[in-house]
Design a protein around this nucleic acid. Sequence first.
DNA 1: GGGTACATGTAATCAGTTACATGATTTA
DNA 2: TAAATCATGTAACTGATTACATGTACCC
Lengths: 174, 174
Amino acid sequence: MTPTSYLVLGFVSRSGPVTSYDMKQLVKAGIGKFWSFPHSQLYAEPERLVDGGFLSSRKEEGGRRRRLYEITPAGRTELEAWLSEPSPEGTELRDLALLKLYFCSLAPSEAVVRVAKSAAQLHADLATEWAAVAEALRASADPCQAATLELGIRYERAAAAFWREIAEDPPTST
Amino acid sequence: MTPTSYLVLGFVSRSGPVTSYDMKQLVKAGIGKFWSFPHSQLYAEPERLVDGGFLSSRKEEGGRRRRLYEITPAGRTELEAWLSEPSPEGTELRDLALLKLYFCSLAPSEAVVRVAKSAAQLHADLATEWAAVAEALRASADPCQAATLELGIRYERAAAAFWREIAEDPPTST
DNA sequence: GGGTACATGTAATCAGTTACATGATTTA
DNA sequence: TAAATCATGTAACTGATTACATGTACCC
């Protein structure tokens, strides 16, 4: 079971019979803001879960003949067990700008400033964008999704501040 | 070119002739704290870069006959171009605990509290651990590496605080 | 001198990425 | 009715993960 497996199990369990395209939309509207899941995986992964007995699938008769997925008892058991057990892994913070900063001693300080300014702008924009999304979620729907976005927003704000500091006083300048 | 490519290019450029094992150690000491690179990639990727003309390799004669890598002019050009251009991608925040929180409406609130408490402890521990590493780096060596870790530390502190709040007032309780 | 941990890789599998391709709806 | 966009997948490739395997140094 990969993270994608649990993502799919969660969507199917929460949103009833869904298609891969539905999940693609759900990703785009929420978790996908900071953890990207390519849509081809949202087509491939449910098939694996059907093979494993965690989902059942059926095809629409008319129209687009889409594949609809539903969770099985085994799938529900698996998901609930996973949700209940602590995660000891910590966070992967994958950021190419940060990797560039890591090697900034190899670059001229103008380059570092350029990268830092662009990152500061980006993270500031993302923070405001997500804040709007979270606001909408909080009002209408699931507080769990809103809470998840909240950590993302806090990260984006911290990142924006951090990159502004780097742009002002790049580590190579000393 | 993948992120791993640039990681390897950066290490080889910064630390002169290095072996894959050296890079494994470098990862472990720094960037690997929040972005994991499995050691098998640190063996595979340099070979790809040699094929592409970005690195040269030679074998030690005596002893362990290890493979040592050095950067070529083409490799240096590639690395410097990459370092100088802004990164528009943003950060991937991959965290299984956060994914669990995203689906917390499917779990009993005791489970959410359990996961949140464990995550709070974990992130608090990581924050103090990295702070020590960053302190050592700041004193002896490269301020760029220390700066990079700094964002990691801020994230860990924010995450620890966030999860404490979740544990106290889980979203499902309402 | 036997065990343990460090060091150095390889191999097999599988997931993830990118690109391609086509059918169905809407809109101009 | 043609164009554009939304919807729904498939295929090829390649990188990442996991597991295996063996050699070397150190320490008890």
